[in-house]
Design a protein around this nucleic acid. Structure first.
Lengths: 119, 119
DNA sequence: TTTAAATATTCCTTTACAGGAATATTCCTT
DNA sequence: AAGGAATATTCCTGTAAAGGAATATTTAAA
């Protein structure tokens, strides 16, 4: 309805905010892996790995391909694209040097004062 | 020290993953606001607003300027810059059309099969 | 057809955290 | 100095979620 809302998905963020899940995501940068490989490389017990992987894929961050006995997990591009476009919508904030200008000037002034008080 | 780690701060993510805090962030896009204004516009009770604002500033997402009685909160650019650069490091994933190539081919093949079965 | 490997699911317990209500703190105003 | 805003903090309670251990499920292999 309103129209200017990028509406970043909070589930994506909270899924990524858990350390083990972030590790999984970082790990999968280099390519798809099976549950066992992920668990092993991260020092996780298999059930916990599966649970985290479920959270990640339930939220669209990963996708699975069943390969016989194994499940191969890999990153999906969409959530990263969404996150990217959301963050980009803060460019005005990121560019800055404008919101902080007054702080900067205030700091300068404080320094000047300090010098003055030494005279 | 391995060196390729962007090391996205998880606290930033979990701070943003809470609905009211995300609302606050979205609200502050348009400029700094006081606690009271934030609470009012979001329909929050003042104490909850203060608590969320504390979480956000403890994690460097907001900064405060004390203006007599009031506290004026505004967005800080750094966490957004950090998030931006982290997400950018996934460009290979985002560009895609390569990881999904095989899925794409598989889909094509299915379509061909459907056609065939109609003959 | 039994056995074993890979993965998912369930149950339990503990912990982190959000909201509610009350209260403390700070600063302005009179 | 007293009272009143604006904000922060504390205490309490409920709930969601993570880890551990055990078990179910699926598929390959013998």
């Amino acid at each position: 309805m309103s129209g200017k809302n990028p509406g970043m998905d909070l589930m994506t963020l909270s899924a990524l905010a858990e350390p083990n899940r972030m590790h999984i995501v970082e790990l999968l940068r280099d390519g798809p892996l099976t549950v066992g490989e992920i668990a092993e490389r991260l020092g996780l017990r298999q059930p916990q790995a599966s649970k985290h992987l479920k959270v990640l894929s339930d939220n669209g961050i990963l996708e699975v391909k069943a390969e016989a006995n194994r499940r191969i997990y890999k990153l999906r591009p969409e959530p990263f694209q969404a996150l990217d476009s959301w963050v980009k919508s803060f460019r005005r904030i990121m560019e800055d040097r404008f919101d902080n200008l007054e702080d900067y000037l205030r700091e300068l002034q404080n320094k000047e004062q300090s010098k003055d008080s030494l005279k």
